[in-house]
């Protein structure tokens, strides 16, 4: 699956320009599902990126685990979920020194969550690269109850926490790693537009 092309949007909506090798600098590469293919492509373009790379992969049912571990990175770890991998990612960030690179590939939820962790650990944004692959489902914050709903694929959707029906905005918070969901029938309770699939 090639890198996703998103339609133009507002300036807070993140863009994912694709991964470019920064050479043999120590790095952490985190990917989920089809994001693995972006890492494989990156290594193909410049095998030197692997010299000091630590790969963390969340397959989410995708079949790329074996190919990733065969690349020969310094470390390659497969995790059952991103939540399960986060303590490991935090530990890697805590040990990192300036010059460290973060490569993120896969869904917006993964890219947003790991980038938010890295920034709060002190990594400047320009040390983070990202490439979107796979599902375009979004990670949404409910502006009302503050709960996060993962993998939102329709607009509007029901908040997994408070049950309000929310519309999907393009307004995005890097600190939260999430888009904003706002009550769709606030002014006219009960009148909810038909749910549609989110498009890129």
């Amino acid at each position: 699956m090639p890198a996703t092309k998103f339609s133009p949007s507002i300036t807070s909506r993140p863009v994912y320009p694709g991964l470019v090798s920064r050479g043999a600098a120590p790095s952490l590469m985190v990917a989920d599902a089809e994001g693995a293919e972006a890492l494989i492509d990156l290594v193909e373009r410049d095998p030197a990126v692997l010299d000091a790379a630590h790969i963390v992969y969340v397959p989410a049912g995708a079949p790329f685990g074996a190919r990733l571990s065969a690349l020969g990175a310094r470390l390659c770890h497969e995790a059952p979920s991103l939540s399960a991998a986060l303590p490991r990612i935090r530990a890697a960030l805590a040990e990192a020194r300036m010059g460290f690179q973060l490569y993120l590939a896969g869904t917006e939820g993964l890219i947003g969550r790991v980038a938010a962790e890295a920034v709060s650990a002190g990594l400047p944004l320009d040390a983070i690269q990202s490439e979107h692959r796979g599902s375009i489902a979004r990670r949404m914050q409910c502006v009302h109850c503050k709960g996060i709903t993962e993998d939102v694929a329709t607009d509007p959707f029901v908040c997994a926490h408070c049950g309000l029906t929310l519309f999907v905005r393009d307004h995005y918070s890097r600190r939260l790693g999430a888009f904003q969901g706002v009550c769709v029938d606030a002014e006219t309770p009960g009148i909810v537009p038909a749910s549609q699939e989110i498009r890129p």
Binding site: G23, A25, M98, G99, F100, Q101, L123, P124, L125, A127
Partner: peptide, 8 residues
């Protein structure tokens, strides 16, 4: 050369 981000 050491891959420092410009923002730093």
């Amino acid at each position: 050369r050491l891959r420092w981000p410009r923002a730093a």
